[in-house]
């Protein structure tokens, strides 16, 4: 049933998420969602010369939440903080080849956790 409603890219990122896991020496982290509501994402950043050198995530959520988390980290990896903060939920959805209408909200999880992590990095540096 799921294969009919999700793109192959979504399934693939769900089954083999990229950059999954926590990061003990992260320079910053950002979270969004609420485990009580059924989804929760934390993104970890390792930053060097204003570039996201490494990124990882931990997620509790549905298929779309796992796939968007994975794709968010792929889109942000190697980018400058400035460019990474421009990644939108639409970019994430597009990169996944689309999400079903009722799952579009999951992509917001990725965008907001990434933005939060970048903001926290700036706040820490300041």
């Amino acid at each position: 049933m799921f294969c009919e409603i999700f793109t192959d890219t979504v399934i693939e990122h769900f089954m083999c998420p990229r950059n999954a896991g926590s990061m003990t020496d992260a320079d910053s982290e950002g979270s969004s969602g609420d485990p009580d509501c059924g989804d929760s994402l934390t993104i970890y950043l390792k930053v060097k010369d204003n570039v996201i050198e490494d990124i990882s995530f931990m997620v509790f959520g549905c298929v779309a939440a796992v796939a968007t988390s994975s794709m968010t980290t792929e889109l942000a990896k190697g980018k400058t903080l400035e460019d990474a903060s421009k990644v939108t939920d639409q970019d994430i959805v597009d990169a996944l080849g689309g999400l079903p209408e009722n799952k579009l909200h999951c992509s917001v999880l990725g965008e907001s956790a990434l933005k939060q992590a970048i903001q926290n990095y700036y706040a820490k540096k300041a």
């Binding site: 799921f2 769900f14 089954m15 549905c62 298929v63 939440a65």
Partner: peptide
């Protein structure tokens, strides 16, 4: 999470 379990079981 429930839906993720269902999906992996389904696969």
């Amino acid at each position: 999470e429930g839906e993720s379990m269902i999906m992996m079981l389904d696969l």
